[in-house]
Simulated scan of single mutants.
Amino acid sequence: MNCQNELTYLCALRGATTCENNSVESITSAVEELLVELVSRNNLIPDQIISITFSVTSDLDACFPASIARKNTGWEKIALLDCQQMFVKDDLPKCIRLLAYVSLPNEQIPKNPYLGKAKNLRPDR
């Protein structure tokens, strides 16, 4: 993105979702839905996305969320990373979280998607 022609700021977006099963299909569906919501709610194009870090709870190990995101058209230059969420007793099971660094227009208010059972993590959002 050419930041010299547009007034933008670096913004960290958060989001989370849950999936039903520890399967490639279930994780893929959940990650795709989360990314669609992240992009649509914030009116993003790939050039605005700098990086996304995904974390998953220890009960999800069927596939890497970043490998799902990497299949999106135009996402070749986006830095993607997976990690395991630290274990906390009574944490929300089968949860996928993300932290995305993006460039937003100055007047745009960031919108953080919390989907599925993860809505309970941030009822304020």
Rank of each mutant, 00 (worst) to 15 (best):
D59Y: 07
N43V: 12
N106V: 11
V31A: 06
D90S: 11
V88H: 15
N112E: 02
C3P: 05
K111A: 00
D124R: 11
P105S: 14
R41Y: 14
I45C: 02
S40L: 08
F54W: 13
T57C: 01
P93Q: 05
N22Q: 08
S103L: 14
C83M: 14
L99F: 04
K89H: 13
P93R: 12
S23H: 02
A12Q: 14
T18L: 03
P65V: 02
I49K: 02
T17G: 04
E33I: 07
L80D: 02
F87A: 13
P65D: 08
L10W: 00
E37K: 15
S51N: 10
Q108S: 10
Q84N: 09
D124W: 14
P113H: 02
I96F: 12
T28E: 14
P93M: 06
Q85R: 15
P93T: 12
Q4V: 09
R125A: 11
S26K: 01
P123R: 00
N112T: 03
E6N: 13
Q48H: 07
E33H: 14
I68K: 04
F87P: 08
A66T: 11
L98G: 10
K94T: 02
L80S: 02
P123E: 04
N21H: 13
N5E: 07
S26G: 00
Q84Y: 13
A62C: 15
S23K: 10
Q84F: 08
Q48F: 03
L38T: 05
L115I: 01
E76I: 09
E25Q: 15
C11P: 01
L35D: 03
S40K: 02
L104R: 11
S67A: 10
N2E: 02
T18Q: 01
S55F: 01
P110A: 00
R97H: 05
E37I: 05
R41E: 13
C83T: 15
E107R: 10
Q48P: 06
K71W: 01
